[in-house]
Each structure stands twice: as C-alpha cells, then as structure tokens.
C-alpha cells in the first residue's frame, strides 16, 4: 500500500513486494494461458477417443471414401459429406473472398474518410447477425430465387455458398483492411511519384506487399465457412449425395453431426464423433496449407 502512494523513494520492503507482485501476476497469466490450451487438448482428445474406434472398426479408408450412410444398418461412409463441405467452402471462398477483398481495397484506397467511417462498421455489423437469420433469409428469398431462375430444388451448393460468402465477409474484410493499412504509406508515395496511377499502385505494389495478410484473411474466412452449421442446414438441402452441380443439394460434415445428434445412439453416435474427427483433420490440413503459403510469401517479400 505504501508503495502505491506515489512516494519517490522505495523502502526495501516495498521493492520486494513489487517483485513478488510481478511473479504473482505472471504465474496467474501462465495458468490462464495454459487453461485455454488445455481446453483445446481436452476437446481434441475427447473427439478422438469417441470417434476413432468406430473409424478403425469400419476402416478409415472405407469411412471417408464410401458413399453409404445407413446408420441403422451399420453402414458409415461420409464421402458425400466431405465433398459437400469442400464444395460449399470453395464456393463461399470465391464469393466471400472476392467481395471481401474488393470491399477492403475500396475502403482503404479509394474511399473518403467519412465514407469509411460509415461503411466499415456496417460491414462489421454483419458479424452480429445470428446465423439462423442468415439461414432464414436464405430459405425465404435466395432459395426460391435460385429455383425459379436457375432451376433445381433451390436448396443447393450455390445457395449455401452465397449465404456463407456473405457470412464470412466481415472476417475477410476487416482482416484484409488491417493488412492493407499495414502497408507503409511510403510505398504508395514511392509508386505514385514514379508516375503510377492510384489503381496501378494498388494492384502492383500494395496488394503485393500485403499478400501474406490477405491470405490470412482468406484462411480465417474459410474457417468460418467450414465450421458454420445452422445457416447451411437451412439452405443446403442435406441430401446424402455427392453434389454433381452447383445447383444440387448437399449435406456438409457439420450439418450431419447437428442433424443426427439428437437421436443417435451407440455406433451411430460414435460415427458422428468420427465425422467430427474428419472435420478436425480437414480444418488442420487447410490451415497448414494456408499458413505455409502465407509464410513462404512473407519470407520472399522480406527477402530473408
């Protein structure tokens, strides 16, 4: 207490307490950090413990490559769901990535400041809309529109991609904006002084300099798309076929778990956990690929 009263000189006791306080706080922080990591470890261990035995029992190859999903008869093949997740995520990445990157470029390079102060918060507001609302709007507006104008049942890869693309916009946009704003202003001045226009500068220098940040934005957006469940269930159609066109209905890995968890028991329940294992592995692979790409690019950029 005496130490906190702004005395210019410290007593030996006060200095000792200060040191102890540092130690105390840093050990608390360490415990907090470890518990966050231990959450990850426990969840991973649990999913694998529940899911792995049934996968081994069916055979890992058969589990991921078979198209027969008849839990009542003991047939567990999730190939259609894997393809569904990949198709929907790829579609969302195309839609959300292009829109998000476009937004970020406009916001950072071509917008007057007052417009940015209106547009950026409104895009970030998209993150606050519950996913069930996205799904509902998708079902009521998007799905009938696709059915009438493009054909098919409407509940489709395309509908899910559009909904997920819009859902990942805030993530992609705000991280891309950060990456673009992190480019030193000197690059802009340097390029423009060489007779480049604003757009040429953006295209040839600024996008290039911020590439690793933009890749990170895409990864995180993709993570959101792979993991999203509720909105996808509502607009994807959830059939158990491998999608053969963007207008075909699909079921994703996450939807499969959510749809059947309520009534599953025994091997069926374990197979759903195994679905979770596959999802986990897919996300790990995607993240690793993306991280490697962004790391290699940033190393090349810094020239080390």
């Amino acid at each position: 207490m005496r130490a906190s009263q702004g005395m210019p000189k410290r007593s030996p006791l006060g200095a000792w307490l200060d040191r102890k306080q540092d130690l105390f706080i840093s050990s608390i922080l360490l415990v907090v950090a470890l518990s966050a990591i231990s959450g990850l470890v426990v969840i991973t261990a649990f999913i694998f413990k529940e899911g792995l035995p049934i996968m081994l029992q069916v055979g890992v190859g058969k589990f991921v490559s078979s198209s027969d999903w008849y839990p009542a008869e003991g047939h567990f093949g999730i190939f259609p769901m894997i393809m569904g997740s990949l198709a929907v995520t790829a579609g969302a990445l195309v839609i959300g990535g292009v829109l998000g990157l476009g937004c970020a470029v406009v916001l950072t390079q071509f917008c007057p400041r007052w417009a940015v102060s209106i547009l950026k918060p409104s895009i970030e507001l998209l993150a606050g809309i519950p996913s069930v609302v996205y799904g509902f709007i998708g079902v009521v507006i998007l799905v009938p529109m696709i059915r009438v104008h493009l054909g098919g049942p409407g509940l489709s890869v395309l509908a899910s991609s559009i909904v997920l693309g819009i859902m990942m916009l805030p993530t992609v946009t705000s991280i891309s904006v950060d990456a673009l704003q992190a480019v030193p202003k000197a690059y802009r001045d340097g390029s423009i002084a060489l007779g480049a226009t604003h757009w040429q500068t953006t295209r040839m220098v600024i996008l290039k300099a911020s590439r690793s940040g933009l890749v990170a934005a895409m990864i995180l957006g993709m993570g959101r798309a792979v993991g999203e469940t509720m909105a996808v269930i509502m607009v994807a159609g959830n059939t158990l076929d491998v999608p053969d066109s963007i207008l075909a209905p699909v079921r994703t890995l996450t939807s499969n778990i959510a749809l059947e968890m309520g009534y599953a028991a025994g091997d069926h329940r374990k197979a759903l956990f195994a679905t979770g294992v596959v999802l986990f592995v897919i996300i790990m692979i995607l993240n690793t690929i993306a991280l490697t790409v962004s790391r290699r690019r940033s190393r090349r950029k810094s020239g080390a």
Binding site: P184, G190, I192, A193, L194, G195, T197, V205, K208, A209
Partner: peptide, 20 residues
C-alpha cells in the same frame, strides 16, 4: 498528373524500395 510525375522525378529522404 502521372505524366507530370514522370517528368518531375523525386527521391525521398528514406529509400523506398518497392516490394519487388
């Protein structure tokens, strides 16, 4: 303006190598 900037070249206090 781009043409003006080509005719009137500029060197800054701090070197600005573009990331190329």
């Amino acid at each position: 303006v781009a043409r003006i900037r080509r005719r009137v070249g500029m060197l800054y206090a701090v070197p600005i190598p573009l990331p190329l």
